[in-house]
């Protein structure tokens, strides 16, 4: 099961915004600090936190909260 509060916390720490600023429709387009470099940091931080390994294809593309959630739910479904 994905703990969304934890995910929001990780995203807020890496993107340097308040946890409340991370919403269901947040994405690279809506959060100014979320650039391609921060995205790299975000993927690494999510992997650290949830002890998962995000596949290469998805790592570069999950540039919205909804997509990250989807991929994480999938990776965590057997955990």
């Amino acid at each position: 099961m994905l703990n969304e509060a934890t995910l929001r916390q990780v995203m807020s720490a890496v993107l340097n915004v308040a946890p409340s600023a991370i919403e269901q429709n947040s994405s690279m387009d809506t959060i100014g600090t979320w650039d391609s470099l921060r995205h790299l940091h975000l993927i690494l931080a999510i992997e650290d936190e949830f002890k998962v390994s995000i596949p290469d294809d998805e790592a570069g593309n999950i540039t919205s909260y909804a997509l990250i959630k989807l991929v994480l739910q999938d990776l965590l479904k057997d955990a």
């Binding site: 916390q9 990780v10 720490a13 890496v14 340097n16 940091h41 690494l44 931080a45 999510i46 650290d48 936190e49």
Partner: peptide, 11 residues
């Protein structure tokens, strides 16, 4: 400690 914890602690 993971990256996001390090970032929060540094801040």
């Amino acid at each position: 400690a993971g990256l996001s914890q390090i970032l929060s602690a540094l801040k």
